[in-house]
């Protein structure tokens, strides 16, 4: 790292040891262990890897996990926007409580969320017994997985959209209004385009969280192979059967998706920064 220099001068101490410690700790805790997945999976060879990740049970888990994650992220996109809009733009009783509690899924351990949602939606739960009476079952069905994914993804959308909504340029909206544009066209033509990078980012974050989620899902899912078995659970199942290679192959496939998403989110965020920078 000979190219290193302090912003204005070299009077600030600690660059060398700081960088050394950072890289060493990062390598020991994150990079070397993560590389174990790649190396172990590569022992399989491509055809071996492909056989594992395209076996019917694994494919069924992909369909379930990715399908429901997209649906949950989409639901959060719509309702998260409504919630963010209500909390930033309107004053109403309970607003501050809602604003403070939106982060609950970040702070509440996933296992606690899992058993709480299961209690809520099971046959004699507050919502479950009511839904049962109109013939809808949520707990121990794929619908239960969806509920858990909505729970853990909600704050990502709200918290990404909220700051953009707050800093939205009032003048552009007022100009549109003074030129005779109604509220709906102003929303569609002025507000939505400004919000869209943040909305996409929130969607991608919620989606990324949902595909890897384990704790809050497994309690409510029912976990029936081919029907309600998510991919992370399948990794655990393989591990419990001492099928380390199988577990690693599935984990490697999930890592590929996670990294692709990470790249997408970074791209979206720089787009978002440019978009809001140009407007604000």
């Amino acid at each position: 790292m000979s190219g290193a220099k302090s912003r204005s001068s070299n009077v600030l101490p600690g660059f060398g040891p700081g960088l050394g410690f950072t890289l060493a700790y990062l390598a020991l805790i994150v990079l070397i262990p993560l590389s174990a997945v790649v190396i172990k999976a590569s022992h399989l060879g491509f055809s071996g890897f492909w056989t594992v990740v395209t076996s019917p049970r694994v494919l069924a888990s992909y369909r379930l996990t990715f399908g429901l994650s997209i649906v949950a992220a989409a639901i959060n996109l719509v309702f998260g926007l409504a919630l963010a809009w209500a909390v930033t733009r309107y004053r109403f009783p309970g607003r501050r409580l809602i604003d403070a509690l939106i982060d609950l899924p970040f702070a509440l351990p996933t296992a606690v969320a899992g058993i709480a949602l299961t209690a809520l939606y099971s046959k004699n739960g507050w919502l479950g017994h009511w839904l049962e009476s109109i013939g809808i079952q949520i707990a121990f069905r794929p619908a239960g997985i969806l509920v858990a994914m909505i729970f853990i993804g909600l704050p990502f959308v709200v918290r990404t959209v909220q700051p953009v909504l707050q800093d939205l340029d009032a003048e552009a909206e007022e100009a549109a209004a003074s030129l005779g544009a109604g509220r709906l066209p102003t929303f569609v033509r002025i507000i939505l385009p400004t919000l869209s990078p943040a909305l996409f980012t929130g969607f991608a974050l919620a989606f990324g969280r949902a595909i890897g989620e384990y704790g809050s899902v497994i309690f409510i899912a029912g976990n029936i192979p081919m029907v309600s078995e998510i991919t992370p659970l399948l990794i655990v199942t393989k591990l419990e059967q001492y099928d380390y290679t199988g577990a690693t192959a599935i984990a490697a496939s999930m890592l590929v998706v996670s990294f692709a998403l990470l790249g997408t989110i970074n791209g979206l965020q720089s787009w978002s920064a440019r978009r809001t920078g140009a407007v604000g």
Binding site: G212, E213, I235, V236
Partner: peptide, 9 residues
């Protein structure tokens, strides 16, 4: 961005 399960694995 890594699933908790993969983090354990």
């Amino acid at each position: 961005s890594v699933s908790p399960v993969v983090a354990g694995l």
